[in-house]
């Protein structure tokens, strides 16, 4: 037991504020359960001053989306010499952007969907009908349209026909200026958390996701009961091993630290295909990372507490 003070940072101004508050609440409770003195803070103009006042304790960022996940807030913590759990601002910036992260993971030798990243002004400059038609020819249908920088499946649409592509692009652009269009991977959806407790990154059990609606969208994610989870996933051992390899491989290729979660789909041939890696995995009551820890016989509070100790040892700005 430790009574060390930690700050759980949750909320923020992103589209995922609500999810972040849920994650923050659960993480804070888990840390309290193992004896920490937890202060919960939201992002505001007084944040850095508050952290100063509190004596720069270790921060556990539970922010999802926007500045919380794209490296901006981590950068501010680094500048203010506040130690924190999780990836550096530099690697968060890379991992959060699907248009940058996916090619990087592909370059490390892992399977990814074929992906095309398009800033909205490309369409302005080049004219949309030609680009849309070319996209359809290049990737084929169905395809997946997503905002490059977002989460919780917000703004994601499966597109079956070329006529529906423009509306899906417009929806993705409502979340940010760059969209990615990917080949649609059919198979078993799985999430694999990775934790590094000081001896190198280790994959936790894969969690299989079976939404009742067939689509793992926002509603399926955060309505308790709407999705069936299997932990560990119902996969052959060799496939499970390859999922773990992919998750650890992505964690390394993106230069992530302490913890991450890779979302992937095992395709019909049994190949795990990378979708994205999260630097701030959800910790809500319906999130996969806590489920996976449970399946591994680990306790969320203890894991976070160990990561807090590591962050403290590492010190500020590191």
């Amino acid at each position: 037991m430790t009574s060390e003070k930690v700050v759980v940072l949750a909320g923020g101004l992103s589209h995922e504020r609500d999810v972040s508050l849920r994650s923050g609440r659960r993480a804070a409770q888990a840390l309290r359960d193992v004896g920490h003195d937890v202060v919960e803070l939201d992002v505001s103009s007084s944040l850095l001053a508050r952290l100063e006042e509190l004596g720069r304790p270790v921060v556990v960022p539970m922010l999802h989306g926007g500045a919380g996940e794209d490296g901006a807030i981590r950068q501010a913590l680094e500048l203010a010499d506040v130690p924190f759990v999780g990836s550096t601002s530099t690697s968060a910036r890379v991992a959060f952007d699907k248009a940058i992260a996916t090619p990087r993971v592909a370059a490390a030798g892992f399977a990814t969907p074929r992906q095309i990243a398009l800033p909205d002004d490309m369409f302005r400059e080049l004219g949309s009908p030609t680009l849309v038609a070319a996209l359809g020819r290049r990737l084929g249908f169905p395809m997946m349209v997503k905002p490059a920088r977002s989460g919780s499946a917000l703004g994601c649409t499966k597109v079956e026909r070329v006529e529906d592509l423009p509306a899906a692009m417009v929806q993705a652009y409502a979340y940010g200026g760059v969209a990615v269009v990917e080949t649609f991977v059919t198979g078993t959806e799985v999430a694999v958390p990775v934790v590094d407790l000081g001896d190198g990154p280790v994959a936790l059990p894969a969690v299989e996701i079976r939404p009742d609606s067939g689509v793992y969208d926002y509603t399926a994610r955060y309505t308790a009961g709407a999705t069936r989870f299997l932990a560990p996933a119902e996969l052959d051992q060799d496939v499970a091993d390859r999922c773990a390899e992919l998750a650890v491989g992505a964690h390394r290729a993106l230069g992530l630290r302490d913890l991450s979660r890779t979302d992937l789909i095992v395709d019909g041939a049994g190949t795990p295909v990378f979708l994205e890696a999260n630097v701030a995995p959800g910790m809500t009551e319906t999130s996969t990372m806590p489920l996976s820890m449970e399946a591994a016989g680990m306790d969320l509070g203890h894991v976070l507490s160990s990561l807090v100790s590591l962050a403290r040892q590492r010190g500020a700005g590191a």
Partner: peptide, 17 residues
């Protein structure tokens, strides 16, 4: 992880039905 692990099959809401 070993194969013998019990698998948890859950909807995270025991009252779903």
């Amino acid at each position: 992880m070993s194969l013998e692990q019990p698998r948890r099959d859950t909807r995270l809401d025991r009252y779903v039905d």
